[in-house]
């Protein structure tokens, strides 16, 4: 599903930049669920940024869903992004679009029919419990509601690889439980999932293989 070999990443370029990741090697198969653990500044977000194709690794080999990322053409990278869902820590909802339009965005970029989009959006918003807030703007929602909208947008197109950065931060225990159940269901259906968190309680409650980072280095990759 994705393979990293000897991957390094530095903010602001390889030479003068600040090292965020050093010599990371990973091999995660289809349908696996992995926690990505480590304290703040460990490099979790940087690793997710590389996997979500938001940044390019400074060195090493990255292969995602069979595509060698470092050598891929821009158009192939764009197609690859359509198979990767990401829940960002800061949600990244567009404030001038309604909740409906925010969630519909990935499907519209895939040129799906509007009727199909409406059906999908209503179904996923019902699942996250926000079917009554479709016309609201993101800034009219609470932090937890915004997070649920961001999750809905990331999973609506059934990505082959799902990346989530602290997705339970703004959720209460019940909602976090529902989210984890959904993640495990998606993994059973073949979606590879990587969830970054520094919430030890939720990791203990939902045990799964984990990748642990510290100071940009991989400390453990245990299953």
């Amino acid at each position: 599903m994705f393979r990293l070999h000897d991957v390094s990443y530095a903010y602001g370029g390889n030479r003068a930049g600040v090292a965020a990741l050093s010599h990371i090697s990973l091999d995660v198969a289809q349908g696996e669920f992995r926690w990505l653990l480590g304290p703040s500044g460990a490099g979790k977000s940087s690793l997710l940024s590389i996997l979500s194709l938001e940044v390019q690794a400074s060195a090493g080999m990255v292969e995602i869903l069979g595509v060698p990322v470092m050598q891929a053409r821009r158009s192939n990278l764009a197609r690859l992004r359509r198979r990767i869902g990401t829940v960002w820590q800061d949600f990244r909802l567009l404030p001038d679009l309604s909740v409906f339009d925010n969630v519909a965005l990935p499907l519209r970029l895939q040129h799906r029919a509007e009727d199909e989009i409406a059906h999908e959006v209503h179904a996923i918003m019902k699942w996250v419990g926000l079917e009554n807030r479709l016309d609201a703007r993101p800034l009219q929602l609470s932090g937890g509601e915004q997070q649920r909208v961001a999750i809905a947008r990331a999973v609506i197109y059934r990505p082959a690889l799902l990346l989530a950065d602290e997705p339970t931060n703004a959720l209460d225990e019940r909602q976090a439980g529902r989210l984890m159940a959904m993640f495990h269901r998606l993994a059973e259906l073949g979606t590879t999932i990587v969830v970054a968190t520094h919430n030890d309680a939720i990791v203990e409650k939902y045990p799964a293989p984990a990748i642990e980072l510290a100071h940009g280095h991989m400390v453990r990759d245990y299953r």
Binding site: L53, T86, L94, L105
Partner: peptide, 16 residues
């Protein structure tokens, strides 16, 4: 910028 970066990360082609 914010919207462009987002739809780029969601898989929008440069040509789009």
């Amino acid at each position: 910028r914010q919207a462009i970066v987002l739809i780029h990360s969601l898989g929008a082609m440069d040509s789009y």
